[in-house]
């Protein structure tokens, strides 16, 4: 496993995988979108607006999947101090924030016809909003700390603190919500969803996951290259060649 994590092995592997992944992403989206917009029936209560679900639900799924990816990378950074884990972590944060943002926007668009207002402090939406803020904090931390290795370890610690906190936040937001807003909000169909609506949803889920994987690999690759560039720039600036540093250890007799 660690062999694949070596950047010199990772870069050619990504180059080989990317076209296939990109192709699979396009294909999955083509099927998923056709299913969602043409094949699946409109909801008898919600009408055509239910189609937002095919974007909203996969985006919500990805917002959490991306955080899980970051958590795994954070462990890689802290436990093995692996540069690839640093790059994977940094690459995932903006993508995760983007999916979370899509989830919030589609949720809000869906809310307008359903609840009659753009925003409702519904427990789920609020939890996702907090997740979005945590993503933004992570990105800000990445951007503020100059040294990449240090930034990676700081972000890794924050990611792990976040992982411990997310269930607590979810629990407390649920408590807060039931306290202030007794179950008046719309609930999604849950397991009673009809098969004709379920399969496009699953395909869209796969398409989003493929999209994330493609984007994440590309961004990780870019981050590795950016780091190499940075190292080269520093070496040029300090007039250093690639030769190894040398040192001489000698015995000095008497006072120097």
């Amino acid at each position: 496993m660690l062999k694949y994590a070596n950047p010199t092995f990772f870069l050619p592997l990504v180059a080989k995988l990317l076209p296939w992944l990109a192709g699979a992403t396009v294909a999955a989206f083509a099927i998923g979108i056709w299913g969602a917009f043409f094949s699946a029936p409109a909801d008898y209560q919600q009408g055509e607006t239910v189609r937002i679900m095919y974007i909203h639900v996969p985006a919500a799924w990805l917002s959490m999947f991306c955080y899980a990816t970051m958590t795994a990378s954070a462990l890689g950074t802290l436990v093995w101090r692996h540069p690839l884990a640093d790059a994977a972590q940094k690459a995932a944060a903006p993508i995760g924030a983007a999916f979370t943002f899509v989830c919030l926007v589609t949720g809000s668009l869906w809310g307008k016809p359903m609840w009659g207002t753009w925003w409702v402090w519904d427990a789920r939406l609020t939890s996702v909003l907090v997740l979005f803020v945590i993503y933004l904090g992570l990105i800000a931390l990445w951007q503020t700390i100059e040294d990449p290795g240090r930034a990676a370890r700081g972000a890794a610690i924050l990611t792990l603190v976040g992982v411990v906190n997310l269930p607590i936040i979810k629990f407390s937001v649920d408590w807060w919500n039931t306290l202030h807003q007794p179950a008046s909000v719309f609930r999604m169909g849950g397991p009673t969803i009809a098969p004709s609506m379920l399969w496009p949803l699953l395909v869209m889920g796969i398409a989003f996951t493929l999209l994330f994987t493609t984007l994440h690999l590309m961004a990780t690759r870019n981050e590795i290259l950016r780091r190499r560039l940075r190292r080269l720039a520093i070496q040029t600036a300090t007039g250093e060649t690639n030769a190894q540093p040398t040192h001489r250890l000698t015995m000095t007799g008497g006072a120097e």
Partner: peptide, 9 residues
Amino acid sequence: SLHLELGGT
């Protein structure tokens, strides 16, 4: 003392 000289290159 012992003496250690560090040098970039």
